[in-house]
Design a binder for these strands. Structure first.
Lengths: 205, 205
DNA sequence: GGGTACCGGAACTGGTCGGTATCGTTTGTC
DNA sequence: GACAAACGATACCGACCAGTTCCGGTACCC
């Protein structure tokens, strides 16, 4: 089993030369997300990202083969940083739902939807990226809502025949629509209107 | 009051030469909407639209000063063609909501959301276009839902304290989200799930 | 019939951007 | 200390595209 001298520099540690600085990876991806949120995929130029990250473009292409691959990994990092989004049990469905939007700082959720809006253009072209964006940004919220609804059913608080899957999609859908098309803030006021005007009335026994 | 010889050729009818063929306007805008729905704003090239419309680009720029102005007017035409979207009274809220998606051919609604998805990239940059798209495509649906809900209240069919504005936004929001991000069809099955699983339970007395 | 503005088509221009190559420098291994 | 790879920076290339200009031809007004 001879040593493989042509493999990835990360797994291969028999080569001379300066080591790749992995701190730069995360920093670059973070800048990419910022630019993406500000100007969208089409408006995001590699030069702009490089300049803001104080990096050379060679540093980019040593890591990712293309712009789209870089963005794909940036979205993956967004998902990683978000964590599992498991909500604390406040005792009532209403409290749980409201609490879901507190722990992550509001600017955090705001940025996620800004990134989503920036990606919107490319979603119709690149199916892989569309899935990645959906899985990274919206699906965790939907899943968290599902958990809360099931918990409320188990608690006997709401109608056990409630259509959990459809109901869980309401808040994320309206948040995405509001952020992307209407460009209005998804604030606590609107959140309360949806919870009290739609969700809770729909599930009462 | 001397005659103004430098004004728009449409309002000014004192000039010689071949008349501008206004049938071309609509045809070009229609092709633009098709291309927009297929490849999005960024992917839509003037050459491609010209080729498919069998028109020279000079014909474009004689009518609209730029690509964005052309798209803006194409969206306005989409709104014009959609009409007022006044729904027939079927006697029940459920019937009314389902009927709302029948009269316009399903491919029509499908195309509207495809255009919206194609526009998504530019919405964050161009506020005017964002408003135009919202007003042309989604707002008419929302307004139609509002009318139906108020009608059901007047009929005594549903809870008169229902939050009409928030409820009316649900179907359009979920349709837009589903078409733009999830790329799943907004079919009758999903429509029925939202109506029976969310809307009707939320408004029962 | 002469003049003019429209038509579709095509060539051209100027700018932008993804990606590559190269520079001098820095950081690591042998 | 010799070598090699990563670093930031910059110049460069090739493709693409919005917008302009020209062409030969056609419809309309006088």
């Amino acid at each position: 089993m001879a040593a493989n001298n042509t493999s990835d520099p990360d797994t291969e540690r028999r080569r001379p030369g300066r080591k790749r600085d992995h701190d730069r990876d995360e920093a670059i991806l973070e800048v990419a997300l910022d630019v993406l949120a500000e100007v969208g995929y089409a408006g995001m130029t590699m030069n702009a990202v490089a300049a803001r990250a104080r990096a050379g473009k060679a540093t980019f292409y040593r890591r990712w083969p293309s712009k789209s691959e870089l963005v794909l990994e940036a979205v993956a990092q967004l998902q990683r940083r978000q964590g599992s989004l498991v909500p604390a049990d406040t005792g009532s469905l209403r409290g749980d739902l409201l609490a879901l939007f507190r722990p992550t700082s509001p600017s955090d959720a705001e940025r996620q939807f800004a990134v989503m809006a920036g990606l919107a253009s490319i979603l119709s072209q690149d199916l892989g990226l569309a899935d990645a964006a959906n899985n990274a940004i919206v699906e965790p919220w939907t899943e968290a809502n599902r958990v809360l609804l099931r918990r409320a059913i188990g608690r006997g608080e709401i109608d056990p025949a409630a259509d959990v899957d459809t109901l869980a999609a309401i808040l994320p859908s309206m948040a995405a629509y509001r952020a992307m098309i209407q460009r209005k803030p998804f604030d606590r006021e609107f959140l309360a209107a949806v919870i009290d005007g739609v969700l809770l009335p729909a599930v009462r026994r």
